[in-house]
Design a protein around this nucleic acid. Structure first.
Lengths: 219, 219
DNA sequence: CGGTGCCTCCACCCCGGGGTGGAGGCACCG
DNA sequence: CGGTGCCTCCACCCCGGGGTGGAGGCACCG
């Protein structure tokens, strides 16, 4: 990486825009090449200046930040986008990340955080607000271990009986119904349920059903 | 947060273990209450000391870090886990995060990074290595909630919001978590849940998860 | 022989999930 | 204009699910 990291700042609030511009101008190795007050201007600025990084507000008039991010990523994939916004609700976060943002900062980030995000993103890494990271974890897609051994032995050391109970859970049976189905007491069912929860690391039967589907124990 | 953040350090290599212990002992507001040389010891230490944070190596004898993390999260959900490992391959990362780790550091992290991760995780946030963040982004689920109108209309006359709630149920979230995720009250979530149960004809969330998987609203 | 793992069952506790019966705001539409 | 559907939120109730801490029988095996 030679030469400064070239940045475009897009925010509809002038104070914010100029504050960030100033902040970054005092940062070593970073240069603000343009600013934009709405999404359309941001896209145009990217086309004209081919920056390394775009600092993008989400709430802007005329083509909001998400749409602008999507356009930037589609037409100028070399330019990375860091979202800088007051809001961190799931809708915004997912939409922005899906549009291709590699960074996500909230507006109480300090100069240091902003500079770090710009550098990391320019270096091909990601830099997300800690709360956003946590949300991502919650949305973690199923961990499919390896589809190698499909109908092989039970995963996570489940016993035969536990797999049986798990399948019935996935089939939508209550503990009482499972007990009737297996001709054992409900207490026994609850024991198996507790054991298989512990082994698979799930919290409740909803998660257990998802686990069963992902591991081919239901369907 | 009053009192120091109480930490357990688990690593089978003595140099690493004691190095981190020293490093953290010099950090304001952090106290190492125990160390562990393998997974079993780590789990036992958590049970005995009820720490705020566990720094967990992944490669350890007798119950590896992933299993230990899972146990800690199951049995002592108050204690958060930060993984500290040399490896950042996808399998390890996914397994660890799935087991419930809230932090992920590689071993070339400095004292500052380690301290920051401990603090953030203790505060209920997440702190993942930037490369891990990038991997997570690549794994981002296909933003199911509101995909404009791609995969056909919702089955059984489900509204957009109901489909959204159903997807989150299938992702294993509780009503409280769904409420937080959608930024609405829990009462609203319960209303949607009741409506979608009635429309789809399921009885509880276990059956709802199965329904979601069968109708391609999860997975 | 003793140890281990699995299956079986018990009592007890508590909270979250699921159900009922409301309500208001808003957008859309005939 | 009034009706309808959706989203939002409330209070209240109750039961099943999930967790704890036991226990005994049995098969297998070193």
């Amino acid at each position: 990486m030679d030469g400064p990291i070239r940045v475009v700042v897009a925010d509809d609030q002038r104070v914010v825009r100029e504050g960030i511009e100033l902040m970054l101008s005092l940062t070593d190795g970073v240069e603000v090449v343009a600013t934009a007050a709405d999404g359309e201007q941001a896209v145009a600025a990217v086309a004209r200046y081919d920056p390394d990084v775009v600092l993008m507000d989400l709430r802007m008039p005329r083509c909001d930040g998400v749409a602008a991010t999507r356009l930037v990523r589609r037409d100028h994939p070399r330019s990375q986008v860091v979202v800088l916004t007051t809001f961190a609700d799931d809708e915004s976060v997912l939409a922005a990340l899906h549009a291709g943002a590699r960074g996500y900062l909230t507006k109480d980030a300090g100069a240091e955080e902003v500079a770090r995000a710009v550098r990391r993103v320019a270096a091909g890494q990601a830099d997300l607000d800690p709360d956003v990271q946590r949300r991502l974890l919650e949305l973690l897609p199923a961990h499919r271990p390896v589809p190698s051994a499909p109908a092989g032995p039970a995963p996570d050391g489940l016993t035969e009986r536990e797999v049986e109970v798990l399948s019935l859970i996935a089939a939508g049976l209550s503990n009482t119904e499972i007990a009737q189905s297996l001709v054992v007491s409900e207490a026994t069912v609850k024991t198996h349920v507790n054991h298989l929860f512990a082994k698979t690391g799930v919290r409740d039967r909803a998660q257990a059903v998802a686990y069963a589907y992902r591991h081919g124990l239901a369907g």
